[in-house]
Design a protein around this nucleic acid. Structure first.
Lengths: 193, 193
DNA sequence: CCAAAGCATTGACTTTTGTCAACGACCGTT
DNA sequence: AACGGTCGTTGACAAAAGTCAATGCTTTGG
């Protein structure tokens, strides 16, 4: 239990056995079936969610009712509506399972306590959020500066593990394109080769 | 000297007078004239840059030579090519001054030392980067899910302090639009009212 | 104080993307 | 084996954004 979580944690900050035990008290395991919600918008995001096994997505629904995927999470990744989690305000994101999942949850109160009582947790979180920022920065930069064809190529390489497991129309959504446009781009690229 | 820096720092993490003195040793003041570079791409980003006074922008130049602004920074904000700063790899961003500036620089080595020797610095940075992540997330979400007209309205409110000081074509770039398109959107909006 | 540069706007046109609809393939379930 | 659902692709058309060029206005630097 919690294998992947502690492996990833130790990659960032090495823990002593007794520290692992201490930390374990604050963790909650959870299983989620495919299509189940972890979070629905307007609820407050009570947990930061680490993925031991499976895949999830975060998305928002706009005025027209269209879904826009903002993030995927596979094994070893953490997902949440961070804004809602930090501020304990209603979420704008929905999060649901794309596959059956095994998760490790950390509640906001556990997060706050750990932040105060366990400096290594703060360091872990600091590194986690820094990495997340860098990834998001990269993604945003790509969206702004690349043509959709270049963007598809870059995303394909950058997120190959995701692209292999997720239907194409979700990738289109993640890239900010309609499914038809993505399909046409793929057509154009494969013709060229 | 460093007034704004310490005011902002204390808003996040309260410092004792002797802690301020300690921290001061690691800070470097710098003045920059309008149009001067703080960072050019392919150089390594050696400093995290806090703005005491003035305004800067970060942007990247694509294959065609077009500029894409990824961030602005006014008084009280911090700016850097974070990816380059953290990993000490060549930068993809350029940073230059939009107005004459007074800056407070923290070198990478100072940053690393402070991270180890001064827990409050780690906490400061953790809060800083969390806020930056939330802002970037919000911005990215807006880009993906809003029409350009809605986006302009949202950006206008969200970044009014920037919009007042920066030429419109830079705002267009920041929004991922051509200057002409932004001008037409503004035209449409003002007609409606 | 004047010339040059930067800036915002507008028009005409092109390119890109979205939308709507139809079709066929594949999948799991019953 | 048959069914409904999801998915990816394609075509025809509409909407949005980009491009290029011209204009007039303001700012600025010598």
């Amino acid at each position: 239990m919690y294998e992947v979580f502690f492996r990833k944690f130790n990659e960032k900050v090495a823990l002593l056995p007794e520290e692992e035990e201490f930390l374990k008290q604050y963790l909650t395991p959870k299983k989620l079936r495919k299509k189940q919600y972890l979070l629905q918008d307007d609820d407050v995001c009570k947990y930061s969610c680490f993925v031991e096994q499976g895949a999830l997505r975060a998305y928002l629904v706009d005025e027209k009712g269209d879904e826009h995927i903002t993030a995927f999470a596979l094994e070893g990744w953490t997902i949440a509506d961070l804004s809602s989690f930090i501020r304990q305000e209603p979420a704008t994101l929905n999060i649901d399972a794309l596959e059956d999942c095994e998760l490790v949850l950390i509640s906001k109160s556990a997060h706050d306590e750990l932040m105060l009582s366990m400096p290594k947790y703060e360091t872990y979180f600091r590194i986690l959020i820094t990495d997340a920022y860098l990834a998001l920065q990269q993604r945003t930069t790509n969206i702004i500066s690349l043509s959709s064809e270049q963007r598809y190529k870059v995303f394909t390489q950058m997120y190959q593990s995701i692209f292999q497991r997720v239907p194409q129309h979700m990738i289109a959504s993640f890239m900010g394109l309609s499914p038809e446009t993505l399909s046409r781009i793929r057509g154009r690229i494969s013709k060229k080769k």
